[in-house]
Design a protein around this nucleic acid. Structure first.
Lengths: 119, 119
DNA sequence: TAATACTATGAACGAGTGCTGCACGGTAAA
DNA sequence: TTTACCGTGCAGCACTCGTTCATAGTATTA
């Protein structure tokens, strides 16, 4: 439907609800890592289904990696930013800087609802 | 519906069909400038309506500026990348580099259909 | 014995958005 | 009268996104 292009596809993923926030949560975690339940807690309002979906997408995109510890019960799932994922933070920062520099009527960030601009 | 955030909003605009291509066309033009009809010609398949819409959006975002020469008939409309728009090219490049570096199964760019990767 | 914690997946539904197609508007030169 | 030029408005289709509810498996805890 849209143009075939890695740029476009990449950007497209980032627009999905929660995706940026999930990446940022992982970035803040020890070793850029978080558990499923931790993510869910730190993202009030997200449903397990959507979180699961986004994590799968990010894994498919090689932005995060997943490690399941099935020896423990209940199961632990750890999600970690890949090297590429960590570098993506830099790209997101660049976008943010551009936006802050050139957007006159930007949405007031730093508000409680927006965690992205705390980068 | 989505998170309020300039980053998110910015990225969101870039995902729309034709937007990236329009920006690139302007970037290639003399003085980063193009006329409506020139844009339409160089983007086969785009309709006047969509081109018009995208240009309006980009203008509202301060990425391009518009100049109408009503003294001539038929009317001439010139669209030019703003300073911010030109800087945005750098951001798009960064996204592209990231994508090329980290995406294993990226869509084959350089194909005829994709003009974005010629950046 | 039953409930709870944890990590999911699937189906159905509703809302929204993006894009297309078509019609229509104006003016001046050819 | 047609063409070049630059749009706008409306109708409608298709797709996507997100929510909600149902389900599932296991081991510890009450």
């Amino acid at each position: 439907m849209n143009e075939c292009c890695t740029v476009n596809m990449t950007v497209r993923y980032l627009t999905k609800k929660w995706t940026l926030l999930i990446i940022l949560e992982l970035f803040k975690g020890d070793n850029y890592s978080r558990r499923f339940s931790e993510l869910k807690e730190s993202l009030p309002g997200i449903t397990a289904k959507i979180l699961s979906e986004r994590l799968q997408e990010l894994e498919a995109e090689n932005i995060i990696s997943k490690k399941i510890d099935a020896s423990v019960v209940p199961i632990r799932s750890d999600y970690t930013l890949t090297e590429g994922g960590v570098e993506l933070i830099g790209v997101i920062r660049d976008i943010k800087y551009w936006a802050l520099k050139w957007k006159i009527d930007n949405i007031p960030c730093g508000s409680q609802e927006c965690k992205i601009c705390r980068l």
